[in-house]
């Protein structure tokens, strides 16, 4: 079966995120107050052919760790598309 997967890649805590910081600084000027801790990241969507959800997520997690993210600076989380 083909399982639709989403992988979110975000910077680890402690790694500077200048894009997130810039977005956060822009928000008050647009009237959005009280928004904090903005962090940016990337989302990947793909389908995985596997026998079970667990297998599909395992494959997705493995490729997310090896290619989609750099574990030195990023964290990758794979989930099934709702």
């Amino acid at each position: 079966m083909n399982y639709p997967i989403i992988v979110d890649v975000t910077l680890r805590e402690g790694i500077a995120d200048p894009e997130g910081a810039t977005i956060e600084r822009a928000l008050p000027a647009l009237g959005f107050t009280g928004v904090a801790h903005v962090r940016t990241g990337k989302t990947f969507r793909f389908g995985v052919e596997a026998d079970s959800e667990t297998d599909a997520l395992g494959i997705a997690h493995s490729l997310a760790e090896r290619l989609l993210s750099n574990p030195v600076i990023e964290r990758a989380v794979a989930r099934l598309e709702a």
């Binding site: 910077l11 790694i15 500077a16 200048p18 894009e19 810039t22 750099n70 030195v72 600076i73």
Partner: peptide, 17 residues
């Protein structure tokens, strides 16, 4: 070299973008 693990650490976007 850092991505390949031949050197430690990583290079990220410049401060100031």
């Amino acid at each position: 070299l850092t991505e390949a693990g031949l050197l430690p650490g990583a290079l990220v976007k410049n401060r100031g973008l």
